[in-house]
Amino acid sequence: YWEGTEHPRFKLNEDTGMISMRHGTRDGRYHLRFKVYDRKHTQTDVPANVTVVVKEIPHEAVINSGSVRISGITDEDFIRIWNYRTQSLSKSKAEKFKEKIANLLNIERDNVDVFSVQLRRKHPPVTDIRFSAHGSPYYKPVRLNGIVLMHREEIEKEVDINITMVGIDECLYENQMCEGSCTNTLDISALPYMVNANKTSLVGVRVDVLAECTCGARNFSKDENCKNNPCYNGGRCIESRYSLQCNCPAGYNGPRCQQVSRSFKGNGWAWYPPLEMCDSSHLHFEFITRKADGLLLYNGPIVPPETDEVMVSDYIAIELERGYPRLLLDFGSGTLELRVKTKKTLDDG
Rank of each mutant, 00 (worst) to 15 (best):
Q258R: 04
C178K: 06
W2H: 10
T289C: 06
R9P: 03
G300N: 08
K291L: 12
E224H: 05
T164G: 03
F220A: 10
Y324V: 03
A48W: 01
E212Q: 14
H31F: 00
A270V: 14
S181P: 04
E224M: 10
P305L: 06
K344Q: 14
N184W: 00
Y139K: 13
R69V: 12
T289R: 08
G146M: 03
T289F: 04
P230W: 09
R236W: 09
K199V: 05
E170D: 06
P47Y: 01
V62M: 15
L105R: 07
F34Y: 02
D314F: 03
K222I: 08
L12P: 00
V209P: 04
S280K: 13
I288A: 15
P305S: 05
R85Y: 10
T5N: 12
Y37W: 07
V207A: 06
N64V: 05
E174V: 11
N247L: 11
Y252P: 03
D113I: 04
R152H: 02
P137V: 08
V54S: 05
R69I: 08
D77N: 14
K140C: 00
L202V: 10
V205Q: 13
P125E: 06
M21H: 00
G4K: 03
R85I: 10
K341Q: 15
V260N: 10
E154C: 03
V310G: 00
S88F: 02
G235V: 05
A94G: 00
K100A: 02
C215Q: 01
C237R: 02
R109E: 14
D187Q: 11
E306G: 15
F331I: 11
D128P: 00
K157V: 01
V159H: 04
E337I: 14
D223F: 05
E154I: 04
R262A: 10
K344V: 08
L191I: 08
T42H: 11
C226M: 05
A292F: 02
S333V: 09
G300Q: 07
I70Y: 01
R256D: 05
V207M: 08
R26F: 01
G254C: 06
F220Y: 11
N267V: 07
H123Y: 08
Y139M: 06
R236V: 14
E309G: 01
I81Y: 02
R206L: 15
E306A: 12
Y232D: 12
S92T: 00
G66Q: 03
D27H: 07
D160N: 13
P125A: 14
N247R: 06
Y324Q: 15
L297T: 03
V53W: 01
L244I: 13
E179Y: 10
V114C: 07
H59W: 12
L329S: 11
R22S: 09
P8N: 14
R236A: 12
E179P: 00
G24T: 03
P192T: 13
D169I: 05
Y272M: 14
L283N: 07
S67T: 12
A211P: 15
A250V: 11
S221R: 11
Y242L: 09
D308H: 11
D169E: 09
G266F: 04
S88W: 02
A217I: 11
K11P: 00
